[in-house]
Write a protein that binds this DNA or RNA. Structure first.
Ligand code: TTP
Ligand code: MG
Length: 574
DNA sequence: GGGGCACCTGAAA
DNA sequence: TTCCATTTCAGGTGCCCC
């Protein structure tokens, strides 16, 4: 398990947990008969509590999801993955059992020091607001077609749903649920195909507003952002709560969309808070150490961004379900997990989180680690089809890289998902940075061919290891913005600066030739040992590697809602 | 010991 | 282009090569 202090991550499933500690978990078990089916022992993420989930018949949802899933390849794969997790947890427990009382005591004492040190860093001087749009994609669609607002609706398709409006959520329909299951839960569910350009436009509008309150605001995704409004509060002599109110009203006025906000002294708490009175509400944890501690104590760890399904299961096995228990079990956690993980756990337990903005992107660095494209399709296995798919992706990726400001990367990662849902990634780092479709395709095809034969349902290509961008002297560069450098019209046009220009080895280009040709099924057997020598001519070694040996990580409510601060009805047009 | 690299898992929207 | 998505990032192991 890997616990990390994340920066994005919205809505883990959330109940109105919080201050009082009395989380309201609706569990409307309508005596569904147990019919000999095993769904009761079946765990699905779709029944976790979440905004809009109150009143949902969880048992029913569970049963439907199970019945629709149980014979699928997907289900088998999920079970395989779960078995691995179970095994890891088992080993972790064995390790825990092996600890002597003395060792545990030592770890506990060490953690006491750590906690004291952490406590000393507690900073309550900052006012953070986490803003999160309500049912974002769905809300945009409703706004643009009001007839949708009166019916259960989901954005996505039969294959997958990205989100659903609150009417649909009452049926248990939610993000990341396959559409055909959602339809089973709610036969009259209306599907709307996503239109990302619209969401982007709406997102840009909200960001323009955020910018006025915090020019350095951090956008996690299109629908959420962290604002440090400390300075704004001081400058205008108002509270964080009032600012949140103001932001929400403005967002609504300018986009006709609602959002929710969390106000707290750090990002971690603010994030949890924005979910509490969703939709269209806000919640604040005041800048008071006791208030923060009291808020965090009864909070289920799963509500913390960064603690997902596996971490939840793992910690539960160790007797940790609430944040307070992270502190109680500090010795054990320190003994079993990596420093990074246990530090994170301790911080969460104390209610500590980030209080400062991220370091600005350094000069020359492109503000991202990678860019990728992937596509799911009906099963494909012929070499020609596979290679054609690869070519499409290479072109798509090249296009995106160009749009992204002419990014050039050195590492190309091919992602494959078999019809049995098994994932495989194969990467290669080139001696030079490339960006054209041809230069992406050639190595991608090499990686692909070695894996044949294959029966795939998905293929993807990722580019990473980006070349740093040097801004021509005399030109002011804004580090926070994605740099838009002229996209070379031709391949020959390399860098504008004096850097020695890299040339990809010849011979790429004709992907046509690469595509067609025989399906001489590559020597099957172990597709892992091949040698992809000779990419190009220079003596650059090409790294090849078999699959990482199975390593086991040991370290491991709508308007009626009771809310802290509802928008004045008229401000929202009601 | 540390820097790359390849690969996998987990998490989030 | 449908039959469980797509995009991005971090942390961890294992290896190679200084
Ligand atoms: C969770 C999730 C969201 N999304 C998209 C659709 C969502 O509208 C958007 C924002 O995600 P969320 O903020 O998680 O969800 P939401 O805004 O739809 O609903 P809520 O009121 O609970 O905040 O991101 C996905 O595409 N896939 C996902 O798995
Ligand atoms: Mg949202």
């Amino acid at each position: 398990m890997t616990a990390r202090p994340p920066e994005a991550g919205s809505t883990g499933p959330a109940t109105s947990a919080g201050n009082g500690g009395c989380a309201q978990q609706q569990d409307a078990s309508t005596g569904v008969l147990s019919q000999g089916s095993k769904y009761r022992n079946y765990e699905t993420v779709f029944t976790n509590s979440k905004a809009g989930m109150t009143g949902v018949d969880r048992e029913h949802v569970k049963k439907v999801v199970y019945e629709m899933s149980k014979d699928s390849a997907h289900f088998i794969n999920e079970q395989r993955k779960q078995a691995q997790v179970d095994l890891r947890i088992h080993k972790l427990l064995q390790r825990a059992k092996g600890l002597t009382a003395q060792e545990l005591a030592a770890y506990t004492r060490a953690q006491d020091m750590k906690l004291a040190a952490l406590e000393a860093t507690r900073d309550l001087s900052r006012v953070w607001i986490h803003v999160d749009m309500d049912a974002f994609y769905a809300a945009v669609e409703e706004r643009d077609d009001p007839s949708l607002a009166s019916k259960p609706m989901a954005v996505g398709g039969v294959g997958m749903i990205t989100t659903a409006n609150y009417l649909a959520r009452k049926f248990g329909v939610r993000s990341a649920m396959p559409g055909f299951i959602a339809r089973k839960l709610c036969p009259e569910l209306v599907f709307v195909r996503p239109d990302f350009a619209k969401y982007k436009a709406a997102s840009d509008q909200t960001r323009a507003i955020f910018c006025e309150y915090d020019p350095e605001f951090e956008a996690g995704s299109m629908d959420e952002a962290y604002l440090d409004v400390t300075d704004y509060c001081h400058a205008h002599g108002i509270t964080g709560r009032a600012v949140a109110q103001e932001v929400r009203i403005r967002v609504h006025q300018e986009t006709r969309l609602t959002c929710s906000a969390g106000i707290a002294p750090n990002t971690m708490i603010a994030k949890v808070c924005s979910d509490i009175n969703k939709p269209n509400g806000q919640f604040e944890v005041p800048a008071d150490a006791d208030a923060v501690r009291k808020f965090v104590e009864p909070l289920p760890i799963r509500k913390v961004s960064g603690i997902g399904k596996v971490a939840e299961q793992t910690l539960k096995a160790l007797g940790v379900e609430l944040c307070s228990q992270l502190i109680e079990k500090r010795g054990l956690l320190a003994a079993l997990f990596s420093q990074i993980s246990s530090d994170f756990f301790m911080a969460v337990g104390l209610g500590l989180g980030r209080t400062l903005h991220h370091e600005p992107v350094k000069e020359g660095e492109v503000g991202r680690r990678g860019m990728s494209v992937e596509r799911t399709f009906r099963a494909i296995s012929s070499k020609a089809d596979l290679e054609a798919k690869c070519a499409e992706l290479a072109h798509k990726l090249a296009e995106e890289l160009a749009d992204g400001g002419g990014l050039k990367g050195k590492t190309i990662t091919l992602k494959l998902k078999t019809t049995k849902f098994e994932l495989r990634t194969r990467a290669i780092t080139l001696p030079v940075h490339v960006s054209s479709a041809e230069d992406i395709l050639a190595p991608a095809l090499r990686l692909l061919r070695v894996e044949l034969p294959l029966e795939l349902r998905l293929m993807g290509i990722r580019m990473s290891n980006f070349k740093e961008v040097r801004t021509p002297p005399g030109q002011k560069s804004i580090a926070d913005f994605v740099r838009k450098e002229a996209v070379p019209a031709q391949r020959s046009e390399q860098d504008a600066d004096a850097a020695p220009s890299e040339q990809p080895p010849a011979a790429s280009s004709h992907h046509e030739a690469d595509l067609q040709l025989n399906g001489g099924p590559a020597a099957d057997g172990c597709p892992l040992e091949l040698s992809l020598r000779d990419w190009g001519t220079a003596g650059e070694a090409v790294h090849t590697q078999g699959p990482a040996s199975q390593h086991i990580e040991l370290s491991l409510e709508d308007w009626q809602h009771a809310r802290d601060d509802p928008l004045p009805a008229d401000a929202v047009g009601m």
